[in-house]
Design a protein around this nucleic acid. Structure first.
Lengths: 339, 339
DNA sequence: CTGAAAGCGCTTACAG
DNA sequence: CTGAAAGCGCTTACAG
């Protein structure tokens, strides 16, 4: 066991006194070493080392009115923001910002209220929300806010970082294999990403003259995928399922199996997220790889640009997501594709 | 687009002036409404509402020398701390603490250096590290630190929250089914959880007079599980594999399949983490369910106790982890169990 | 190149 | 029950 906080940290005055200069000079040293003449610099340098001095950042914040702190709002849902978070936090640190985490329970409105409060707390200079928030009725925020994975545009500094356009590519590919009748097991519709995937699914089906047996609203769970298959009529004609994500897709595969349908022989299944675990499942899952780290970095870059009043960089579309074809997709059964 | 921060937030002086009282009184109101006489209270109340006043927390921190902020150090590894993080952050908020995230790249020593710096920054009152950190050589910290999932004990306020004792239960169960020769594909040995699982594995094998063909050090990846099976001699005699976690286990299963071995007919496989996705895989994975939220809450409770100088609650052993038997485990092939 | 002074927005003894 | 004063540890014009 080590000891705990007996000694107060040294202050700028103690450093100044030991160095034989004014505390103004020490502060100046902190801002820009070169503004002191070498002899003075050496004295201050020595005093700082001797006392192991670290500036009190709270006092500095108070004086400068800058906190160098941004908040990241975590989703309360089933998503694991680990990698995005690490990358975002790393990027922010490099830019000299601390990252504060706020986890918000409750629905979009409750979250919006909390974000509102946060924005006005004076504690943070910007906010990155990983969950979608309901911003209707909110007129003004005093700090920039970036929402990752949200199509709403009533929000200042909105960066659209999720993109469902890969759904189009998936359906085109499946149609090319001969599939005609599709099923979509969507994620929770409170999530912008789920809504947009569903929307692109429906549009693409329509545009290509295909048939959607149904677009079922799920809740991102494997169970929702399983249930969708359990409830599917034998004569639905569905030969391809586009699931909201990998977890749902695994439920779909298991559900299909429980109906006696083999994947991919009788049914093709697509996920989203490229979980390592689904890559090693049997059959390995066709999916969309999402570069969470790039997403996190990009979100922070956008936020920092907002904070600094610089032009906001365009999100680099198309580089973050990548469709991956694996064993869970194949041509439809001959009987079906031939009719 | 909403507007951004033109107007400065109201100060305590403005409130005082509008209410016709001293700012001291307003401050007192903030601390304890009941210490004012009703008439005064109403005036202050009105002024605060009118000006939409929020106390400047940076100034308050400066004065009180309390930041009400704790830091959580994220692992840089493959783990997804999502749920633990949410629960920890939620718990901290309820206790009036803000949570700051620090993501640290690099090895245990680099992380220890960063934690050291953090502890001395005066910005946080306590630190929860989700990754293991190398604390050798560090004598004293001026804030309490709790490490979740680490057996080291040189650290002040160490809370041992990971517990590998379920490995014992797993092996006993498998032995009861008739298994005699085991293989362990461990997680990265830089993680305390991986080290302790491996240790309990070896001890239990020894104690029960069983045989361990090998304990392979992996890196938590599915590939490491796959490779372990790819490299296993045909005559190894192994009929049961204890994997470091679910991801590794899925790699093991896939690898076994590539060797023509069926799970669980030829080989039983155990994971750790109870990922939803592995529950719906075929075969569904036997595993250990970890209550991440309880883990997060408990870690914060311990940390808060340290901060407040209260007695530190004993971690509630046995309630956090639960062994779950599913399709990936079964008796060994007759030929083997009979010999 | 350096120092004395003011002030950031609060809280907390100390008087009254 | 309320107010005047001091001070938390810095930074930043302003002088010199």
């Amino acid at each position: 066991m080590a000891e705990v906080g007996e000694k107060r940290p040294a202050t700028i005055h103690q450093v100044a006194s030991l160095a034989g200069v004014s505390h103004t000079t020490v502060s100046r040293y902190l801002q820009d070493k070169d503004s002191l003449k070498p002899k003075t610099r050496v004295k201050v340098d020595f005093a700082i080392k001797t006392l192991d001095y670290r500036p009190n950042l709270v006092a500095r914040s108070m004086r400068t009115r800058r906190t160098n702190r941004i908040a990241i709002v975590l989703p309360s849902g089933p998503h694991s923001p680990g990698r995005l978070l690490s990358a975002a936090s790393e990027t922010a640190h490099q830019a000299g910002y601390q990252v504060e985490i706020v986890s918000i329970e409750g629905g979009p409105r409750a979250r919006a209220a909390r974000v509102d409060e946060l924005a006005r707390s004076g504690q943070v200079e910007g906010i990155l929300s990983i969950s979608s928030i309901d911003v209707r009725g909110k007129k003004s925020w005093n700090v920039p806010i970036v929402v990752s994975g949200n199509y709403d545009d009533e929000l200042r500094g909105l960066g659209e970082l999720a993109d469902a356009s890969e759904i189009r590519e998936i359906i085109e590919h499946l149609a090319g294999l001969g599939h005609r009748t599709f099923l979509h097991v969507a994620g929770a519709q409170t999530f912008a990403s789920a809504r947009s995937r569903k929307q692109v699914y429906l549009e693409t089906i329509e545009r290509l003259g295909l048939r959607s047996f149904a677009a079922i609203d799920g809740d991102w769970s494997a169970q929702s995928g399983f249930d969708a298959m359990a409830g599917l009529p034998s004569d639905s004609g569905v030969t391809a399922v586009v699931a909201g994500n990998d977890v749902v897709a695994m439920g779909v595969i298991r559900g299909a199996r429980s109906r006696g349908w083999d994947v991919p022989r009788d049914l093709s299944v697509f996920g989203w997220d490229d979980y390592e675990i689904a890559r090693f499942a049997t059959p390995s899952l066709s999916t969309v790889a999402v570069d969470r780290e790039a997403q996190g970095r990009e979100a922070i870059h956008r936020l920092l640009a907002e904070i600094r009043g610089e032009p906001v960089p365009e999100p680099a579309r198309g580089t973050i997501n990548r469709v991956i074809f694996r064993e869970s997709t194949a041509p439809p059964p001959a009987a079906v594709s031939g009719r």
